[in-house]
Write a protein that binds this DNA or RNA. Structure first.
Lengths: 151, 151
DNA sequence: ATAGGATCTGTAGCGGCTACAGGTTCAAGA
DNA sequence: TCTTGAACCTGTAGCCGCTACAGATCCTAT
């Protein structure tokens, strides 16, 4: 797979076709172009965008990376690595490792929320408390030692 | 705990004190007021906001709910239930159950990402592949049967 | 009286899109 | 060739939940 020089060759897809092929919204494709994530494609005489194989690959890459929740900045970095370098594996791996850590943190945070909520909902279902356990939980005592927000 | 009529009594905290007590940013407090999540407090002669006990309770509620990732709209609904009704438990529980489902979906999505990423990173570390496994994964084959985006 | 911290209003920006409005172009059928 | 109507164009504004200013005013301790 030669992924250097994804600048475009042959097939000329209009934006709608590219959208269908990649599952990416038309508006989003134009947005990616605007922020410089996709290079500006050729145009028809009338000004319609015409995409080639390189764009198809590149947009596929972006979509896949988005499905893994990489930020657009991370994706930009990965694309640069993929296109500019011969041995990008180490650097790419670093980006992924950082991102993996972020994801694991998010999972842990959500699991903490999940357990608080699940437990509270169960207590609600009991019907044993006169007050609503959910609302009671949210109206907890204010911690007087709460620190001020950073800044 | 009488939580009806949280409209304000006695202590007159300026916004900075409320911020320190609740751990909520000053800008955020003003933002909550602007969008109608917190009622406008009394003012000093010079126009500074002065908060009472009710605001302290209400903002504490909001913060706690945000920590559980409730949206501001959900929180609005919960606050209405907490203040306007006698037996809000069933309705409050419904809001929480919906939210719990959302959280569980997010966890599942993140776990799927986590396993793809973790596996890919491990393959990167192997050093057995000539190409970078991470970049290969992202440059996967485009699914020709991909459906167009909704619309 | 004065210094300097706290607060005020208003606006703009973040990420990652999405949704218009109001126009032009393209491709297929008559 | 003409006509339809779908696809496409540009540009702007909105979503969520804040955050970060600028530039003015107020409050309090000395």
């Amino acid at each position: 797979m030669d992924r250097k020089n994804l600048q475009d060759t042959a097939p000329r897809l209009p934006i709608g076709a590219l959208s269908r092929r990649t599952g990416c919204n038309i508006e989003t494709i134009r947005y990616y172009e605007k922020i410089g994530l996709l290079s500006a494609p050729a145009r028809s005489d009338g000004g319609h965008r015409l995409y080639g194989y390189g764009h198809l690959m590149r947009l596929g890459f972006v979509r896949r990376a988005r499905e893994l929740d990489f930020t657009l900045d991370e994706i930009r970095a990965l694309l640069r690595l993929a296109e500019d370098r011969d041995r990008p594996c180490t650097e790419a791996r670093e980006v992924a490792v950082v991102h993996l850590t972020d994801i694991r943190t998010k999972i842990a945070d959500l699991q903490a929320m999940e357990s608080v909520l699940a437990e509270t909902v169960v207590r609600c279902a009991d019907g044993k408390t006169p007050e609503c356990p959910l609302l009671e939980t949210l109206f907890g005592s204010i911690d007087p030692s709460a620190r001020p927000p950073a800044g």
